[in-house]
Design a binder for these strands. Structure first.
Length: 250
DNA sequence: CCGACGTCCTGCTAGC
DNA sequence: TGCTAGCAGGACGTCG
């Protein structure tokens, strides 16, 4: 890494000047993920760049001479005439420099629940039992299970035939098993399809995903349920748009 | 401690 | 046709 350049816009989490000299001369040695956070490991021990893409964020490598698109907020100059660019129209994402502290690779990791693929039945059972909240709120809570966003919460609840409004603590073991299985299945399928590309998540880039074509409820308000033909309902729950089938999800 | 809610931001769209 | 209000999302701060 030869240098860092800032775009014109102020970021939600401002890039600190002192981070410049901390990344200078480093190589990116590995790329990892935890929940919705991307970890760019650096050759300097215990240091890493932490990226959150929000909804519209992009992290891409371009050659130096590639024209900069609007909303390019951070440019990391790499060796060999290439740049790592952070691009984010809505600026809901963030890029920070973090170092390991108290076994956490970045500060937010302390408050993250397990990865969906590693989540045990007892963990989910325990979290649901003590929660006086809706299932939708539970799935969006990153401290319970890490990495599920609004689309995948709705799709998981549909697949497990559970109503988003259902109080979390009222689920029986059979329903908890179904929910756990559905989350894994929806995410696995979405990853296979390279994610969901909808509306302004799409910026003329050819790397769009395909999972939007498999949505069962999300963005389908008024359209017939694929299972029973009842029109999909759209409500506001836990501060987010929530889509479900009143007939199939009790 | 827990849960609900407002805030940040841009671009698309519905409606006048 | 041109304008504006409303909506979309994830994390975090604040409030009761």
């Amino acid at each position: 890494m030869q240098g860092v350049r800032l775009g014109q816009h102020r970021l939600r989490v401002p890039w600190q000047n002192r981070w410049n000299k901390q990344v200078l001369g480093n190589s990116i040695t590995d790329i990892q993920r935890r929940g919705k956070w991307i970890l760019l490991e650096l050759s300097r021990p215990e240091h890493r760049l932490i990226v959150h893409l929000g909804m519209t964020g992009r992290l891409m490598v371009h050659s130096n001479d590639q024209p900069k698109t609007p909303h390019t907020h951070l440019i990391f100059q790499l060796d060999g005439g290439e740049q790592l660019r952070y691009h984010d129209p809505r600026r809901f994402g963030s890029v920070t420099l973090a170092q390991t502290q108290n076994m956490c690779r970045f500060p937010q990791e302390a408050n993250l629940g397990p990865e969906p693929f590693d989540m045990s039945f007892p963990h989910l059972q325990q979290q649901l039992a003590k929660a006086k909240r809706s299932l939708k709120a539970i799935l969006l809570d990153q401290s319970i299970v890490a990495g599920v966003g609004n689309i995948y919460a709705d799709e998981s609840l549909y697949l497990s035939k559970l109503n988003p409004n259902r109080l979390a603590s009222t689920l029986n073991p059979r329903e908890i098993r179904a929910l756990r299985k559905a989350i894994v299945q929806v995410l696995r399928r979405a990853i296979e399809s390279k994610g969901s590309t909808i509306a302004d998540f799409y910026f003329g880039n050819d790397e769009s995903g395909g999972f939007q074509n498999e949505f069962r409820v999300y963005g389908r308000a008024g359209e017939p349920c694929r299972r029973c033909k009842t029109p999909i309902r759209s409500i506001r729950l836990a501060g987010r748009s929530t889509h479900f089938c009143q007939q199939c999800q009790r």
